[in-house]
Design a protein around this nucleic acid. Structure first.
Lengths: 164, 164
DNA sequence: CACACTTTTCACGAGTTCGTGAAGTGTGTT
DNA sequence: AACACACTTCACGAACTCGTGAAAAGTGTG
């Protein structure tokens, strides 16, 4: 397999994975950058690396990494004496952080439902449905947070099991 | 508070709640219809009810309810001898069903990650990251499914507690 | 201090999505 | 059988999103 073939395989995967991220609400370019940083073998990238690797304009990278950094899915580092930032995908708990943003979404749902109960009144059918919604969301959010907290131990347990 | 004022309060809430649904990936009109059906006091609606209630064209309702029905968030009923379908929001486990679609998204992530491990190779850094991703997603999906299964009992427990 | 290099900002064009009005379809009524 | 009513489909216009190229800004080097 030539180097170009490998790159092709990688990019095809990137598009496939990015598509799922997009369906989950992430804009196309951040999705591609995240998928690429995850699947490519390097563990730190300059903006130029990402642009060349994905074969897109540097301008597109700029916006994408800004979003990913703000979501804490990528972190920016700077080696002293160099003129470009390095973007690092901290894979140790990348997905916990990804899910943490989902939890925030869940919380916004919950707050919206709660405010609905307030303005519409809990005694009416609509308000009662909203109250149930709010309770369910609160329950689910707590459960998810607990599950996320359990993951590191679970991961180590699995890794230890594989050692045997 | 006049009837119009109440309607205004309701519609304001609908837009607020729909916004969160949209941020979670639902198109605007289905989001509004779902929010309206949830917060308004009726428990079944004709397409016309929804169009008038939301003050949008019947055409917009048509597409929105089709999507919501296909997502099983709304169900279609037909009273014999009437010429319009009735849309029912089955609030008993509306949110479990909503979350079930989220679980499918999670599964697509998982499958995409797994296929990446296959084509890229588990021994390389990128492949290893994807394998961890796959494992995390599998863990989380199992945890969420378990939490969803616990909800009905939990809800009843809470309802019983309120009775005291 | 000017230059070389990288990244960012900006404005534009292509493509997509959304909701409407108008026409069409289906169903029950007279 | 013709009509009345409700809903659906379709094509359009408006608004938005996305990624690009060009210009600007920032940063280390000679």
């Amino acid at each position: 397999m030539t180097e170009d073939d490998e790159q092709m395989v990688l990019l095809r995967f990137v598009e496939r994975f990015a598509l799922v991220l997009r369906e989950a609400g992430m804009p196309p370019m951040p999705a591609r950058v995240l998928a690429f940083a995850l699947a490519d073998d390097a563990d730190r990238y300059t903006a130029g690396d990402l642009a060349r690797g994905l074969d897109v304009s540097p301008a597109a990278i700029s916006g994408a990494v800004r979003m990913l950094v703000s979501l804490r899915l990528l972190s920016r580092e700077r080696e002293p004496g160099t003129r470009s930032d390095l973007y690092v995908l901290d894979d140790r708990d990348l997905w916990s952080r990804f899910m943490a943003t989902e939890l925030e979404t869940l919380q916004r749902f919950e707050e919206a439902a709660a405010s609905g109960v307030e303005v519409l009144g809990a005694h009416r059918p609509g308000g009662r449905r909203l109250a149930e919604t709010r309770d369910f969301l609160a329950f689910l959010r707590a459960e998810m947070a607990a599950a996320l907290a359990r993951w590191p131990a679970e991961r180590d347990r699995r890794a230890a099991a594989r050692e045997d």
